[in-house]
Structures are given as C-alpha cells and as structure tokens.
C-alpha cells in the first residue's frame, strides 16, 4: 500500500515474482535424487576426475558423462566468504559462510554454506561435514549446511 514519505511524495513496496519451474536434466536429476536419499554423487570423467556436483559433459573434452560415483560427506573448504548479516532469502538465518567445499573423493568443489557460528572459526583448508535437513525433498537444500568437523 502507498504511504506518504512527505507531504508530496508517495512510496510503496512492490513485489515482482516469477514462479519458475526448472527442468534439471538427467544428471542433476540423479544428483538431487541422491540428496533425497542422503547420498552425494558425482560423475567420473574418462580422465578419472570426479566432478561434484556432476555435469552432463566433460568440461575439458566435451564427452558425455554417465559414470556416477558416491563421494564422502565431509571435505575441505577451498575458499569462503563470511556473511555477517544474512538477508531474508539466504539459506541460514544467522551469520554463516558461503564456501567452496571439495568433498572426499571429489576433484571439484561444491558451493554451499558453512554454519561455523563465528568468522574466527573459518579457515581455508578446514574440514567440514554435511548436516542433512530433517526431511529431504530432492533439492540442494536437503543439505542444510556444512559444519566444522569435530577434530
């Protein structure tokens, strides 16, 4: 609804929303189904690299990829950025880190969140472990976040 910001000028909150439904394709479709079963799967290239999340084609050779492999549920933070003041649409409602996480058995890193509590607990090279959401649905948020692995 409009409200006056002074005697002459009005202001109102507008919402622009598109309710997209996205087709995910066979490879991400299988990856998401794996998350629903609390498994994290990547895909192996002819050269032996394991890509997580999986892609349909080898980014180096363009070859189609179909050999799925399960990887570990813990891994190493390769880079991160601290979010001190999460916004409404962020996956966590408290300060957290966006991080690239190379899971055990994978050669590429997955972008996700680390619930570390405080920026001082974050470090490149730290080990983190997946925390699953209570009920899974076949989407990336089935991984609620990663958390620092107890040392």
């Amino acid at each position: 609804m409009t409200e006056a910001i002074n005697a002459e000028t009005l202001s109102a909150t507008h919402i622009l929303e598109y309710p997209y439904t996205r087709s995910v394709g066979p490879v991400i479709g299988r990856f998401l189904a794996g998350l629903r079963d609390r498994r994290i799967e990547g895909v192996r290239t002819a050269g032996g690299r394991v890509l997580v999340p999986p892609v349909e084609y080898d980014p180096r050779t363009g070859e189609p990829l179909s050999e799925f492999v399960e990887v570990g549920q813990a891994g190493v933070v390769s880079t991160w950025a601290w979010v001190a003041a999460p916004r409404r649409n962020h996956p966590l409602d408290r300060p957290f880190a966006w991080a690239l996480i190379r899971l055990d058995g994978a050669d590429t890193a997955l972008l996700h969140t680390v619930d570390a509590g405080d920026e001082s607990k974050m470090a490149t090279g730290m080990r983190v472990r997946v925390r699953w959401r209570e009920s899974t649905a076949g989407e990336i948020h089935d991984i609620a976040c990663f958390e620092p692995e107890a040392s």
Binding site: T9, L16, T21, L32, N89
Partner: peptide, 18 residues
C-alpha cells in the same frame, strides 16, 4: 526416482517512490 524439475521462483521486492 530421479528428480525432473525444481521450483525456483525469482522474486524481487523493492520500494517504489512515485
């Protein structure tokens, strides 16, 4: 069963000053 699609609404909430 594989997942075939996901809902990804795009939403922009902003203040319009007339």
């Amino acid at each position: 069963e594989p997942v075939t699609s996901i809902r990804r609404p795009v939403r922009l909430e902003y203040d319009f000053t007339a």
